[in-house]
Design a protein around this nucleic acid. Structure first.
Length: 935
RNA sequence: GCCCGGAUGGUGGAAUUGGUAGACACGUCAGACUUAAAAUCUGAUGACCGUAAGGUCGUGCGGGUUCAAUUCCCGCUCCGGGUACCA
C-alpha cells in the first residue's frame, strides 16, 4: 500500500478530536506530568519552521510520558499583547484585537495540522479580559505587599501598617531602596526636620496625614511608583527601547533621544535577589542558563567605604562600593558616574564647561554603548576626596565606564589591581601605588588573587582570602565603612506607555494611587493608538466615559509590559476557565511545577527571571505551594534560513549558473527558495516568478541545469528564505515534518534550516508502511526480537537524555535491519516498534497499529521494556592499536578475560608484523573496548 | 565592552564516562530494473600518495597533559544569543 499521508493524517486527527483524546483532568490514579512550551506571540507572518521545533520536542516527551503511564498536561496558548499588533494599529487604525484574533486563528490552524497532543480546551490568551483580570489581580497583590527581610518572605501590607502604628519602623526590616526617605516629599512631613534619617515612631506614624502615610508605604510596596529614567524622543512623543536608539538618535526617523525622568510603576524584584540565586540549585536547567541568571543578579560581597570631600567639597561624603576593600591603600583616584549627584560639588570653576559637555555626551549614550566604548575617556573635576587611611588628597574624575545604576555610581580606583583602572591611570598619568608583592604595577596590572599585599599597613603580607576580612574588620572598627552586599540586579520597570497591554487596576485620588479590586479594568476605546501630543500614553486619549471603569480623579494610563501576562500563565493552564480565582488551589497542588519546559535561551534574563519572581511571591502569600515554576528546562536553538542565489550578468537578462559565475561580472540576487530544489533552479518557475524575469535567459552548467548559490542567514521575508511548515506538511505530511525537525540535529543547537534531507526521512516513513505490509501474524524470530529490543533500549535512553535526533536514527536502523532480514516479519515483534514510533509520527503509527493487531489507540499503548537478554552481543570486535594507531581488528568472545585478550593479541601474526623487531613496552587492554600496544 | 553558547566530510550531524572519528540521512558517482522517465533497489563516497598491499594527514587555530584527546587544561580566531521598553 502506498503511504497516503494526507488521508491518514486527516483521518486520525479527526478521531483524536472526536474522542477528545488529548483533554486531561486531574486524576488520582496516575502520576502527573506537565510539559509546557514557551507560549508564542502570534505575529502576522504566521508560524515559521523554527517555531514547531520546540513544540515537537515537548510533544514527543508528552506522548512518551503518556505511554509511560503519566497523566500529561500539555497545553498551548498565546502571549497576545505586544508591540507588533500595536504598530500595525498605529499604521492602519485597525484595532490590535482584530489583528491579534486573525493571527491566532492562523497559528492555531498551523499547529493543528502538525498533530500536536495539545489540550486545546485549555487555550489561554493574555489579551483576553478573562485572563488579564487575574494578571491585574496579581499586580494588586504585589501592590498590597511588602517584603520582610528578616522573615525572608513577602507579607500583606496591612501587617506593615499595623507594625508602624504599634512601634514605628524601629523593628522592621523591609526590603526597600537605600536611604528610602530621600525619595519623600518632605513637605508632607513638617515635623521630621532636615536630618530625618528614616526612623519614625508609632506616634509619628499615627499623627501623619493619609497622604504622608501613603508616601511612606509606597517605599515598601513590591509594586511601587518611583521616578526612573527612560529614553524619551520628543519628536516621536514616545519612550523608546534601548534597541530603538542608535547613537543617541531614534532608529525610526533619526530624531534626537534624551533621558527623561518619569514616574513609573516598578517591581521590587531585588527583594528576591538571594532567593533567585539559591533557588537555582533546585532546578534542572543547563549550567549556562543558571550561570547567566546568577551573573544577572550579580551578588557581590564587599564593603561600602566613605570618602570625605576635601577643600570646598568638605561637606560632601562619597560612598563607594568595592569588593576589594583590602586594596584601599592602592587607591589613587576616584571615579564618579557622569550622572552622580555630587559631580557639581567637586567641579572647580575652570573645569565647569568641559565637565558639562562630557556629562551631556555621556547622557546621550546608552549604557551598552558606554561600556562597549574602547577608547578611554574621562575628565578630572578638579576637586578631591580624602583617603580615609592615609589622609592624602585623591583626585576625583568622572568617566563613562562608571554607571550610575550600579553600586553607588562611584568607585575607588585601584590601578594596581584592576585592568580598567590601570588603563585609566596610564592614560591620565595618575600615580599607581605599588601594593602587590612581586609585581611591578607600573608596567603590568596584578590580577592574581594569591598575590600578597605590601605598603598596606596592617594588611601587609596577606593575600585576598585573608586580607579582605581583615580589611572589613578594619573599616568597621574605624567607622569609615561597613560590610555590604551589592546586587547588579535592579528593580524592574513595570510601566509601558503603550496601548496594547494590560491596563493597571489603579485610579488616583489626590495623586494617591488606589487599587481597583472588584472590577476588571478593560482597555478603553481610543481614537488613535499613539501617545497624545503632550506625550501622555495612548490611554490618556480615553475620555472619562470611554473607560469601562472610572474612579477617582483619573485613571492610570500606563499599561503593563509584555512579561506581565507571561509571568504566571503556566498556572492558568491548570484552571483556565476559573472566574472566581486565578487558579484553584487544589489544581495547582495537583499539577504543581512544570516538569519539562521547552523554549529559547533568549528568555534567560527576562521571562525566566520574572516568572520565578512571581512564583516565589505567590508562594509567599500561600496561594500556591511551590516557589520554582519550571523544574526541568530544555533550550532549543534557533533555526536559521538557507537562502538561494542566482547570478545575473550585469546589465543583461542572462543568469549564469553558480559554477560559471566567476567568468562574468555578476550581481547576486536572492531567489525564492520555493523555486529551488537541491540547489537546482526551476527555470520556468523563475520566469513566471516576477515580471522582470519573464524573458530571462540562462547560462547552464555541464549537466544542463542551473545551480544556485546558497548562504545561511536569518529567516526573513526579504530574503525569500522563510519556510513555513504548511508547505512541507502539504508536500510530505505532518509526520515527516515532525521526524525531520527532530532528525536535523541536537535540539539545543542553532542550525540552518535546509530541506535537502527531508526526502530521506519521508522515505523512512514509507519504508515502515511497506514493512508493515510485508508482516503477518506469526511467531517472532530471534533476530527480529534482537533488532526491536535494541531499538527499545536506545530510544528509551535517548528520550530520557533528550537526544531527540538520535532516536530517529535508531528507528531508521531498526527498520533497515528488519527490512534486510531474510526471515518473515511478525506482527507481535513490530508492535513495540510502532509504540516507539508514535511520539514522532503519531498519525502513521495510529494507522498501522490496527493492521498489526494493536488494541485501542496507539497513543494509549504501553511503552515497551527492553529485555536485556536480547541486548548482549556474543562477540566483541577489538581494535588493536600500536602507539594509538589502529592497525587491525580482532574478534573475540565477549567473555574473554583481560589476560587472555593480551595473550591472544600478542600471539597474532599481525602483531608480530607490526612490531617489526621493536620491543613491546606496555600493553593496555580495556575489556570490551580496545587494545593498545606501546612500542 | 561584559555574560552565555557554538565550530567535526560536499551538507545536516553521530561518537552517552578519555578508548575504532565520520553512525544515520542528504548529495554526488557507478550499476540493476525500464522502450523511456519517475519510483525502487545494489555498490562506492573525508583528503592526499599508491596498480595494489598499504601508508600519511585529518574534529576552527596554536600549545600542553595522556599509552590513547572531537572529549581534559592553557592561549587565540571566527560565528550566534543576551545586555534590563522586541517577545
Amino acid at each position: 500500500m502506498e503511504y497516503d499521508f494526507r488521508s491518514i493524517e486527516k483521518q486520525w486527527q479527526g478521531v483524536w478530536s472526536e474522542k477528545k483524546s488529548y483533554e486531561v483532568k486531574e486524576s488520582g490514579e496516575k502520576p502527573k506530568f506537565y510539559a509546557l512550551d514557551m507560549f508564542p506571540y502570534p505575529s502576522g507572518a504566521g508560524l515559521h519552521v523554527g517555531h514547531p521545533l520546540g513544540y515537537i520536542a515537548s510533544d514527543v516527551i508528552a506522548r512518551y510520558k503518556r505511554h509511560c503511564g503519566f497523566n500529561v498536561l500539555h497545553p498551548m496558548g498565546f502571549d497576545s499583547f505586544g508591540l507588533p499588533a500595536e504598530q500595525y494599529a498605529i499604521a492602519t487604525g485597525q484595532h490590535p484585537a482584530i489583528t491579534t484574533e486573525t493571527n491566532i486563528t492562523r497559528y492555531r490552524e498551523q499547529m493543528k495540522q502538525i498533530g500536536f497532543a495539545f489540550d486545546w480546551s485549555r487555550e489561554i490568551r493574555t489579551s483576553e479580559p478573562s485572563y488579564y483580570r487575574w494578571t491585574q489581580w496579581i499586580f494588586g497583590k504585589l501592590f498590597e505587599s511588602w517584603y520582610d527581610v528578616e522573615a525572608g518572605r513577602a507579607k500583606p501590607l496591612s501587617e506593615l501598617e499595623e507594625a508602624f502604628s504599634n512601634n514605628g519602623n524601629y523593628s522592621i526590616t523591609a526590603s526597600c531602596d537605600d536611604e528610602w526617605w530621600k525619595g519623600l516629599d518632605m513637605s508632607l512631613f513638617p515635623h521630621f526636620g532636615e536630618h530625618f534619617a528614616g526612623t519614625f515612631t508609632a506616634t509619628d506614624w499615627n499623627s501623619m496625614s493619609k497622604q504622608a502615610r501613603n508616601a511612606i508605604l509606597m517605599q515598601f510596596r513590591l509594586a511601587y511608583l518611583a521616578n526612573s529614567e527612560v529614553n524619551w524622543c520628543p519628536e516621536l512623543g514616545t519612550v523608546l527601547a534601548n534597541d530603538e536608539v542608535k547613537d543617541g538618535l531614534s532608529e525610526r526617523g533619526g530624531h534626537p533621544v534624551e533621558k527623561k525622568t518619569m514616574r513609573q510603576w516598578m517591581m521590587r524584584i531585588t527583594a528576591y535577589a538571594d532567593r533567585l540565586i539559591s533557588g537555582l540549585e533546585e532546578v534542572n536547567w543547563t549550567d549556562s542558563i543558571k550561570e547567566a541568571q546568577r551573573n544577572w543578579v550579580g551578588r557581590s560581597e564587599g564593603a561600602s567605604v566613605r570618602f570625605s570631600g576635601a577643600g570646598s567639597a568638605s561637606d560632601c561624603v562619597v560612598d563607594v562600593f568595592t569588593t576589594r576593600p583590602d586594596t584601599l591603600y592602592g587607591v589613587s583616584f576616584m571615579v564618579l558616574a557622569p550622572e552622580h549627584k555630587l559631580v557639581t560639588n567637586f567641579t572647580s570653576d575652570v573645569n565647569k564647561a568641559a565637565v558639562e559637555e562630557y556629562v551631556l555626551t555621556a547622557s546621550r549614550k546608552s549604557e551598552r554603548e558606554r561600556q562597549g566604548e574602547k577608547e578611554i575617556s574621562g575628565i578630572a573635576l578638579g576637586g578631591s576626596v580624602i583617603h580615609p587611611l592615609t589622609g592624602r588628597e585623591i583626585p576625583v574624575y568622572i568617566a563613562e565606564y562608571v554607571l550610575a545604576g550600579y553600586g553607588t555610581g562611584a568607585i575607588m580606583a585601584v590601578p594596581a589591581g584592576d585592568e580598567r583602572d590601570w588603563k585609566f591611570a596610564q592614560h591620565f598619568s595618575i600615580e599607581i601605588p605599588d601594593i602587590f608583592e612581586g609585581y611591578d604595577t607600573n608596567t603590568e596590572v596584578c590580577s592574581n588573587d594569591t598575590a600578597q599585599l605590601k605598603n598596606s599597613g596592617s594588611l601587609d603580607g596577606l593575600a585576598k582570602k585573608l586580607s579582605v576580612p581583615a580589611a572589613l574588620d578594619l573599616l568597621e572598627k574605624d567607622g569609615f565603612g561597613e560590610r555590604r552586599i551589592n546586587y547588579r540586579l535592579r528593580d524592574a520597570v513595570f510601566s509601558r506607555q503603550r496601548y496594547w497591554g494590560e491596563p493597571f487596576p489603579i485610579y488616583y485620588e489626590n495623586d494617591i494611587p488606589q487599587l481597583i479590586e472588584e472590577e476588571t479594568v478593560t482597555l478603553p476605546t481610543v481614537d488613535a493608538y499613539l501617545p497624545t501630543t503632550d506625550g501622555e500614553p495612548p490611554l490618556a486619549r480615553a475620555k472619562r466615559e470611554d473607560w469601562p471603569v472610572f474612579k477617582g480623579d483619573r485613571m492610570e494610563t500606563n499599561t503593563m509590559p509584555g512579561w506581565a501576562g507571561s509571568s504566571w500563565y503556566f498556572l492558568r493552564y491548570m484552571d483556565p476557565n476559573n472566574n472566581k480565582e486565578f487558579c484553584a488551589r487544589e489544581k495547582s497542588d495537583y499539577w504543581g511545577q512544570v516538569d519539562l519546559y521547552v523554549g529559547g535561551a533568549e528568555h534567560t534574563t527576562g521571562h525566566l527571571l520574572y516568572s520565578r519572581f512571581w512564583t516565589k511571591f505567590l508562594c509567599d502569600l500561600d496561594l500556591i505551594s511551590f516557589d520554582e515554576p519550571f523544574k526541568t528546562m530544555i533550550n532549543q536553538g534557533m533555526i536559521l534560513g538557507r537562502s538561494s542565489f542566482v547570478y545575473r550578468i550585469q546589465g543583461t537578462e542572462k543568469f549564469v549558473t553558480f559554477e560559471k559565475r566567476k567568468d562574468f561580472k555578476t550581481q547576486r540576487l536572492h531567489v525564492d527558495i520555493a523555486l529551488v530544489d537541491n540547489d537546482k533552479l526551476d527555470l520556468e518557475g523563475f520566469r513566471k516568478w516576477r515580471v522582470e524575469f519573464a524573458n530571462a535567459e540562462f547560462v547552464l552548467g555541464e549537466d544542463d541545469t542551473y545551480t544556485c548559490g546558497h548562504e545561511v542567514e536569518k529567516m526573513s521575508k526579504s530574503k525569500y528564505n522563510v519556510q513555513t511548515p504548511d508547505e512541507l506538511v502539504e508536500k510530505y505530511g505532518a509526520d515527516t515534518l515532525r521526524c525531520y525537525e527532530m532528525f536535523l540535529g541536537p535540539l539545543t543547537q542553532s542550525k540552518p534550516w535546509d530541506t535537502q534531507g527531508i526526502s530521506g526521512v519521508h522515505n523512512f516513513l514509507r519504508k515502515i508502511s511497506r514493512l508493515i505490509d510485508s508482516a503477518s501474524d506469526i511467531d517472532p524470530s530471534k533476530p527480529e526480537l534482537r533488532i526491536v529490543h535494541q531499538a527499545i533500549d536506545k530510544v528509551t535512553t535517548d528520550l530520557e537524555r533528550h537526544a531527540f535526533n538520535t532516536v530517529v536514527s535508531a528507528l531508521m536502523i531498526a527498520v533497515n535491519e528488519l527490512n534486510d532480514l531474510d526471515t518473515p516479519r511478525s506482527f507481535s515483534a513490530l508492535r513495540p516498534l510502532i509504540t516507539l514510533l508514535s511520539p514522532y509520527a503519531p498519525h502513521l503509527a495510529e494507522e498501522v497499529w490496527t493492521k498489526i493487531g494493536g488494541a485501542g489507540l496507539v497513543i494509549d499503548s504501553v511503552w515497551p521494556k527492553a529485555n536485556p537478554a536480547y541486548l548482549i552481543a556474543d562477540e566483541v570486535v577489538y581494535p588493536v592499536s600500536f602507539n594509538g594507531k589502529v592497525r587491525f581488528k580482532l574478534t573475540l568472545p565477549t567473555a574473554t578475560s583481560k589476560d587472555e585478550i593480551e595473550t591472544l593479541v600478542l600471539a597474532d601474526d599481525r602483531t608480530k608484523k607490526q612490531m617489526d623487531g621493536r620491543e613491546i613496552r606496555k600493553v593496555i587492554v580495556v575489556p570490551g573496548r580496545i587494545v593498545n600496544i606501546v612500542c
